[in-house]
Nucleic acid binder design. Structure first.
Length: 454
DNA sequence: ATCGGCTCGCGCAA
DNA sequence: TGCGCGAAGCCGAT
């Protein structure tokens, strides 16, 4: 089945060159399965009777990334290298800035294909490559179900406005992808890259922040993602509507980090979920498609997604937070106190510890956690920056569109006004009593205590 | 245990 | 122009 045209965009006006190969510059879709960019690149290679080279640029100064993220990403890339080799495609990993390497390799390419990213740096890299190469640059949108501009032409106000727009289009995009075979192998081409069989050696060479250790619980890569997905469908999906909000039980897919690095496709996940024909289907697809793509809509149409808040939030939220900026705070914690989980609030401390230890935090607690940072910090803008910083440092899915949208939600983004109160103004308030009322939250404390002992 | 009120603005129906 | 309703809210009254 052909790739939907609305996934594809030409980023420059260059004619096809008579080069030695077609190049796929892989960046946001780090996988061989269900990768529309890769399949388009293969079809272009076959059409021009050329081999396909896949390149990935590994830069050690990616903003806010640390050892935890590099380890997870390289575990995934190691698997990509094996899978591409089986498909007779050469995978070249270079230790350089992604666009720099792409521009170099494009000199001998007839045409370049890349995947789409929505953050500022990802967009900047692509326009730089588009401008500096002589051949065409085709961008393929493969990390979403519904392409961002196809879903909506503007920044959406809330989930309900996007949901309506996605509803009718969703099914057209949840469809299988035809996995093509290359007619010409590129394995014999003499282009050198880093050997991915030994990722420890690669990591040793990188000049990166090593203060955050890799997590034991989750290993990167497509096969790990598939295992988690299968386990989720078999054991959790049916209970998802009832239990997904409860931090004391594990009724989550844990796929967010894999989606973040493009190690698995949301289209493949959606297909498997639908095939399961489970009562949890709609609730899960709501998270996977509506909520996730609302976050992508946000960062795509609002390039101030990391602040300041006045450029992110609706007017009512900006006004109300401003009005309450000098309200007295009962507790004000420093960055270090928050980071080290030294507050008076046990559930908050436990959530922070979960994030530091495991690279993830239960979704419900992410909201409570962010709300309390707003409450315990001198100014909303400082709170927002601090919450983002901690989130992006420790979460395996940090820096994702979901990170920016999720943290902004705690300050009123994609939400509505509520009864006015101190500090929060009309921004939705959450407290520990809510956790106690809804869940047997002490079990969460026990779980985290156990985690600390292991 | 359950319920209404709090409060804003989008987007559809009219 | 009116109106329904929205990521998981809280709080006080019954």
């Amino acid at each position: 089945m052909a790739i939907n045209q609305s996934r594809i965009e030409t980023l420059n006006q260059n004619p096809v060159q008579s080069g030695d190969y077609i190049l796929y510059w892989m960046q946001s879709a780090q996988r061989s399965e269900y990768n529309h960019a890769l399949e388009l690149a293969i079809s272009k290679a076959n059409q021009h009777k050329q081999p396909l080279v896949v390149y990935f640029g590994l830069t050690d100064d990616f903003p806010q990334a640390n050892l935890r993220h590099y380890q997870f990403m390289l575990e995934g890339l190691k698997e990509v290298a094996v899978q591409l080799k089986e498909r007779r495609i050469k995978f070249i990993l270079k230790l350089n800035s992604p666009p720099t390497g792409a521009i170099k390799l494009a000199q001998a390419a007839s045409l370049v294909v890349t995947d789409r990213g929505y953050l500022r740096l990802e967009k900047k890299w692509r326009s730089e490559v588009a401008a500096k190469i002589n051949c065409p640059l085709l961008q393929v949108e493969t990390n979403v179900v519904v392409p961002v501009a196809e879903a909506s032409d503007k920044q959406e106000y809330a989930a309900y406005t996007l949901r309506k727009k996605i509803k009718g289009k969703r099914e057209d995009y949840i469809r299988p992808i035809e996995q093509l075979e290359v007619e010409q192998s590129s394995l014999d081409l003499e282009i050198s890259g880093i050997d991915l069989r030994d990722i420890e050696t690669i990591i040793d060479k990188l000049d990166i922040n090593r203060s955050v250790s890799p997590v034991k619980k989750f290993k990167g890569g497509y096969s790990q993602a598939k295992e988690l997905l299968a386990e989720f469908i078999a054991a959790k999906l049916a209970d998802y509507p009832d239990l997904s909000a409860d931090p004391t039980v594990d009724c989550l897919s844990h796929l967010s980090p894999y989606l973040h690095f493009g190690q698995i496709s949301p289209v493949e996940i959606a297909r498997e979920i639908k095939q399961a024909a489970s009562p949890g289907e709609e609730e899960f697809l709501e998270q996977l498609i509506v909520r996730r793509e609302l976050a992508i809509n946000f960062v795509h149409y609002n390039q101030n997604y990391d602040g300041p808040l006045e450029k992110i939030l609706p007017d009512w939220a900006v006004e109300t937070l401003n009005e309450h900026e000098s309200d007295k705070r009962e507790y004000i914690y420093s960055e270090a106190e928050l980071e080290q989980a030294k507050t008076h609030a046990p559930y908050w401390n436990a959530a922070q510890e979960e994030m530091v230890l495991t690279g993830t935090m239960h979704g419900y607690l992410r909201m409570y956690w962010g709300k309390k940072i707003l409450e315990w910090t001198a100014k909303p803008e400082t709170a927002f920056q601090l919450a983002l910083k901690l989130n992006n440092k420790y979460q395996l899915d940090g820096r994702d569109a979901n990170s920016f949208a999720g943290v902004a939600w705690c300050f009123g983004k994609h939400d509505r006004a509520w009864a006015e109160r101190g500090i929060f103004g009309k921004v939705r308030y959450m407290n520990a009593s809510g956790l106690e009322r809804k869940f047997e939250i002490d079990r969460y404390l026990a779980k985290i205590n156990q985690l600390k002992k292991d």
